[in-house]
């Protein structure tokens, strides 16, 4: 038996990794995925091992995320749905559902009795994902980290196009008509929230319990609040929310190992 687990969530934009001893998170790391998911995963793992002075031989490597199949040095591999669910349960026991918005997909997961019972994930279109938000912020010339301060949520402009490409044209059109940028930005956040609502409304959540949001877009409190208002549920996040998938990968590997 090895002593540690390394979970690597090789996402479309960021590669998140955690070091786990079966009970506690020892360390976390984040690097850009870049063009080579295998390379960035290896790099991220290397940093964790070196920083904690641990040999690779003492670690079970478990991967998830888009790049997981490229990581040929892993012992285990699970889908990001399962990993975000188990990572979420680890962070907030008894959580009934997860909203994960990543670089190129969004998903809502329903959990009952500690297991995934249903989930929705966007089809191949990128509407309502991180890509959509970064396209919009680029078009509006607003830095992603400034979205919260910038958005005027009191009076959002409605963005009708669910398609990322069409939405870009729509935003350019709105700018041409001299619409307020802060109101357009708020409209973009509402548009993402509506996409999440389409998925969450088909799932069976009890209204008096929160959902946990994970993934890269948890950086925006304004987005979390907008989603909460739109779907009618309290939405919480966690300091390890970005690493929920990588944590879940460790937990799934641990479960598999004990089978």
């Amino acid at each position: 038996m090895k002593k540690y687990f390394a979970g690597i969530d090789s996402g479309s934009t960021m590669c998140k990794s955690v070091l786990f001893d079966g009970e506690t998170i020892l360390d976390i790391n984040t690097v850009k995925t870049g063009w080579n998911p295998k390379l960035s995963s290896a790099e991220s793992l290397g940093v964790l091992l070196e920083r904690n002075n641990i040999s690779k031989n003492d670690v079970y490597v478990s991967t998830t995320g888009y790049g997981r199949e490229a990581v040929d040095f892993a012992d285990y591999s699970f889908t990001e749905i399962t990993c975000h669910a188990y990572g979420g349960i680890y962070l907030i026991p008894n959580i009934q559902g997860i909203i994960d918005i990543g670089g190129q997909d969004s998903k809502v997961i329903e959990i009952k009795n500690g297991k995934v019972v249903n989930f929705f994930m966007n089809d191949k279109c990128a509407a309502g994902t991180g890509r959509f938000l970064s396209m919009a912020s680029e078009t509006l010339d607003i830095d992603l980290k400034d979205i919260d301060a910038f958005s005027d949520l009191s009076d959002p402009v409605s963005i009708n196009s669910m398609c990322t490409v069409f939405a870009e044209s729509e935003i350019i059109g709105l700018l041409a008509m001299q619409s307020d940028r802060s109101k357009i930005m708020a409209g973009v956040l509402y548009s993402i929230a509506k996409k999440i609502q389409q998925q969450s409304s088909k799932l069976d959540f009890s209204e008096d319990m929160p959902l946990l949001m994970t993934g890269g877009l948890t950086i925006s409190k304004a987005l979390i609040d907008t989603i909460a208002t739109t779907i009618g549920h309290e939405v919480i996040t966690h300091k390890y929310a970005l690493h929920a998938g990588a944590i879940g990968a460790c937990i799934c590997a641990n479960k598999q190992l004990r089978k």
Binding site: F78, T79, E80, I81, T82, K115, V116, N118, M121
Partner: peptide
């Protein structure tokens, strides 16, 4: 991913 997640589920 979706099919694998469904089977895992």
């Amino acid at each position: 991913t979706r099919m694998a997640a469904f089977i895992e589920m």
